[in-house]
């Protein structure tokens, strides 16, 4: 069974990059176009891992994590934050919200897969 990834990013470019890398690596890929869309899709997709951007319209990445981890959805799946900022404060903030880890943009295929591996154990 393939590991299901829900990617939330408002950039079509990033979504396509993620799709290409993840599908080639054998993941099942789902995507949402902004934070609100991502949270709405969560139950339907029932992903094994979530990858979310931070800067997004409608609901930002921190909001996504808070809602997914919150009472309503109470998600326990790993959540990776996709960010261009490598500053420690950002990581701390994401972690406080309940993020599992982070991927720094621009990412290459290997670092993306490596990050997923560390939180899901999945090779695909």
């Amino acid at each position: 069974m393939k590991t299901k990834v829900l990617a939330i990013d408002d950039s079509r470019t990033i979504r396509n990059l993620l799709a290409a890398t993840l599908e080639e690596a054998g993941f099942e890929y789902h995507c949402a176009v902004d934070g609100r869309d991502g949270v709405d899709m969560y139950d339907d997709v029932a992903p094994d891992v979530v990858i979310t951007d931070i800067n997004m319209p409608n609901l930002d990445g921190f909001g996504v994590i808070e809602e997914l981890r919150g009472e309503g959805i109470n998600s326990k799946v790993p959540i990776l934050v996709l960010t261009t900022e490598s500053a420690p404060e950002m990581k701390a903030r994401a972690r406080d919200a309940g993020a599992t880890g982070w991927i720094t943009k621009p990412f290459d295929d290997q670092s993306l897969i490596f990050a997923l591996k560390r939180v899901t154990g999945a090779v695909a």
């Binding site: 099942e28 995507c31 176009v33 997709v45 029932a46 154990g121």
Partner: peptide, 26 residues
Amino acid sequence: PEASPQPVEKASSAKAESTKSEQRGP
């Protein structure tokens, strides 16, 4: 995590579902 297998139907309808997901949004 291993002990929570996903329903098989979900996986089989993956293709349709992912197409649908891409169409979501504004």
